[in-house]
Amino acid sequence: MDTRQTIAPPRPVKLFHRFANPGQFLRLSGKVLPWLYSAGVLLTAIGVIWGLFFAPNDWQQGDTVKIMYVHVPFAWLASAGYVSLAICSVLSLVWRHPLADLAAAELGPVGAAFTAVCLATGSLWGKPTWGAWWVWDARLTSVFVLFLLYLGHIALVRAFDDPTRGYRAGAILALVGVINLPIIKFSVNWWNTLHQPASIGLTGAPTIAASLLWPLLFTTLGFTLLFAAITVARTRAGVMERRIRMLLMAKTSESGQS
């Protein structure tokens, strides 16, 4: 091995390689997983119960505003999941990180399902408030495109006989799709849309009354932890399944030789 490569790289690269070790990942994720799951369930439960039974109704929407407590977290996770997918893709294309390939393949279906829930709950919210299940405005259309990107990634990663080629193709698709993320975020500011602009920003007070806002913070954090837990668990399973495949292949080639 080239000695310069072991000395020269700065810290982040070393960090990646530590997690690149599948054994290390299995050990660490095994410890973290129960905590992720229990914290996620607890926070989601608090948020849902608070939101459904204790938060006040919106003065115009009435109780329909309660759909916000599930719609907003899923909308956030649809985008955040895609950001994770893009990070995995960079790690895969540039650093050839084997764990990133597996994580990306496992992220795709979870992200697609969460995006589908975002679209479905949004539709269920749109009918009683706007008067329409669906409109092709810039926000709704761009989130629908995000859903298609997830589906494309799922299909592409599994489309090749040689998994490495699938991972590369999927990573490139995922990175091309990153363009869509700022479009989703700013669609409501750049163009006239039926969808309302964001209520919570980095600057200024939120435009949601505090009594309506608290449950949202809990469900957002809760569903995010659950998303992370599911993804980590699936990646764990992926690592184990790959090890099984490799061991089986080694065995068959051994028995073939003897």
């Binding site: 006040p56 003065w59 115009q60 706007w130 409109v135 602009p197 209520s199 435009t207 009354a209």
Partner: peptide
Amino acid sequence: SEVLAKHDENYMPKEVV
């Protein structure tokens, strides 16, 4: 032929209004 209500980004309980 169709009227859609556009909700804005403000959410508040009745008491605040």
